[in-house]
């Protein structure tokens, strides 16, 4: 058994909101020396590209756990809230 996050939409349900519930100021991420979000996020929503020096955040598979909110040492969020009612992750069995 293996958890492959490329297939997360096969086993966890989401009702993805087009309006992201988390927004980043990527300029802050550029100067961050930790980027804790990239390894701590259990859904791998944050990826740092060393070559282009760019942080990419995709909210589609966000599990709404709040890890990034807690570990971000630079407060890089211009918005961090839960999705609008009815949107986001939808646990069925857990």
């Amino acid at each position: 058994m293996n958890i492959n996050l490329d297939e997360i939409f096969d086993y966890t349900s989401f009702n993805v909101d087009r309006e992201p519930h988390i927004k980043l100021n990527e300029e802050i991420c550029k100067t961050c020396d930790q980027r804790a979000c990239t390894n701590c996020c259990p859904a791998r929503c944050y990826t740092w590209d060393e070559e282009s020096q760019k942080m990419t955040f995709v909210h589609d598979g966000c599990l709404e756990c709040g890890t990034c909110y807690v570990v971000c040492g630079n407060n890089a969020f211009t918005r961090w809230r839960y999705p609008r009612g009815g949107f986001g992750v939808s646990y069925r069995m857990t």
Binding site: I3, Y11, M93
Partner: peptide, 17 residues
């Protein structure tokens, strides 16, 4: 652990603080 899980199928993955 693998022995306990043998034949099992992943149903859902979740996270919380």
């Amino acid at each position: 652990i693998a022995k306990l899980l043998r034949g099992g199928r992943l149903l859902e993955y979740s996270a919380h603080l």
